[in-house]
Computed example of a mutant assay.
Amino acid sequence: MGVTSLSSSFGSVEPSVVRPVRPRVTELRLSAFAVHRRAVIPLDGAFTLLAGVSGSGKSSALRAYAALARLAGGAELGEVFPDPVHCVPEEALPDAQQRRGFRIGCTADGPAGPVRLDLAVQVEPELRVVGERLSAEGTVLLETALVDPGRPAVQAAWHTAGSAPVTRAPLPDDRLGTALLPLRVAGKTDGQRRVLAAAEQMVVALRSVFVCDPHPARMRAPVPNGSGRLLTGCDNLADVLWRTRTECSRRHAHLVAALRAGCAAPATDVVAELRTDGMVRAWLERDNGGRTELARLGDGELRYLALALVLLTGPGVLEVDPPGEVPDALQALTVLADGFDRCLDARQRTELARLAVRMGERGHMHCVGTVGDASWAAGIDGVTVVHLDP
């Protein structure tokens, strides 16, 4: 599966030589993953749409991105890939030792410049990392390899540029070595500090990811009052609406404006109520003075409402695991929305795309969505369309 065309100039601007303050992923590489072979997917715009027919690998591309994000957060390989055999390309043949696996990677840009991460994972006969490389400007900063298949470890070597050019040590074969470097590297030499800067940039760029797939059927009923952080399926939409309405009038006003622009029956407000039984219910107030409970909204209106809320909020409201030691001003949230235009009419998908571009141009958010047909986005400035080939 390859990338055959890139419509990168639906309002694009000339690239700047100034490094972004907030680290962010600018490229996803799927060397051998599911249906993909040698695929390089650019993610350098405010809003990127992955377009292609069914089976072209749109969803698997988002799955690979989300997997790298979880590994960067410290998750074990088995947690991230509970059914890893589906990640192995179907035509991949086992080697002489009956081993098969997959390879993925990405590039993160930021203050340290473009940093590349490439990962090789063995799936059969057992799941383990067999190779990892972190590099910047042509210099390999970290490299791991499976030396002894009988040990649950890989041999790692990282750049030091001190009295010894590299430091060698074993690392677990079920975790991302890049995420472990800040605990292993002292940072005493210029080389060590360069390794740390690159590793930290990659981890920060990857970790602030919110996978969003709103399920309308789960959003209609009142929900228990809880943490107020939106779940991936937006099941607790009413609870989060109650929180955002009470905590941030400015953000709430932007949400109402988005609803007025995208709903057939314009809303004058979105209201949420905490009941005495601890449950939260929500409704839209209409121009005619009536109200429409979430239970009565169609799938398109509910998905539109949920996606608009996601684009207007951030890590403090969404169920993500950002690096807590990094200030919010240095983090860029990435929203992964599979089936971005599902159930939406022409006006709704256009308004959401424009909102995604506006939020992306501010620098603190980037949205990557998948669609079957992206022709509707051709007139929207700031949208980058990547066409995937079956």
Rank of each mutant, 00 (worst) to 15 (best):
S9L: 11
S12I: 14
I41G: 02
L6F: 09
S31L: 15
V25W: 09
V40C: 05
V21D: 12
A46H: 04
V35M: 06
S9Y: 06
T4F: 06
A46T: 00
L28A: 04
G11M: 05
S5V: 09
V40M: 05
L6Y: 07
R38H: 04
A32H: 03
S16W: 05
F33N: 06
S16K: 07
V13Y: 01
P42L: 09
T4R: 04
A32V: 02
G11C: 07
R38A: 07
A39T: 01
S8H: 12
L43K: 03
L28Y: 01
L6C: 08
S12Y: 12
T26S: 15
A46R: 04
A39Q: 01
R24C: 13
R38T: 02
R22S: 13
P23D: 08
P20Y: 14
V13R: 05
L28D: 02
T4W: 06
E14T: 07
A34Y: 02
P15F: 00
H36M: 00
S16H: 06
L28M: 06
V25I: 15
L30P: 13
T26I: 15
S12L: 15
T26E: 15
F33P: 01
V3Q: 01
R29P: 11
G45R: 09
V35A: 05
S7P: 06
G45W: 01
E14V: 08
G11V: 08
L28N: 04
V17R: 14
R37P: 00
R22C: 13
V18E: 15
V3C: 03
H36R: 00
S9I: 08
S8M: 12
L43C: 03
S31C: 08
H36N: 02
V17S: 13
D44E: 12
A39V: 03
A46G: 00
S8D: 13
S31I: 11
A46I: 05
V25Y: 08
R29V: 08
R19E: 13
G11T: 08
R38S: 05
E27I: 06
A39N: 03
L30W: 11
D44N: 10
V13N: 03
R24I: 11
E27S: 08
V25T: 11
F10Q: 13
F10M: 10
V17F: 07
I41T: 01
V21C: 12
V21W: 10
S8F: 08
G11A: 02
T4G: 09
L43F: 03
S8V: 11
F10H: 15
F33L: 10
S12R: 15
V35S: 05
V13A: 09
L28T: 03
G45K: 07
F33R: 09
T26C: 15
L28K: 04
S7W: 11
S12C: 15
R29D: 05
P15E: 01
S12M: 14
A46F: 04
V17M: 13
P20Q: 13
D44M: 09
V35H: 03
S12F: 14
A34G: 03
R29C: 07
G11P: 12
S16T: 14
A32P: 00
A46W: 06
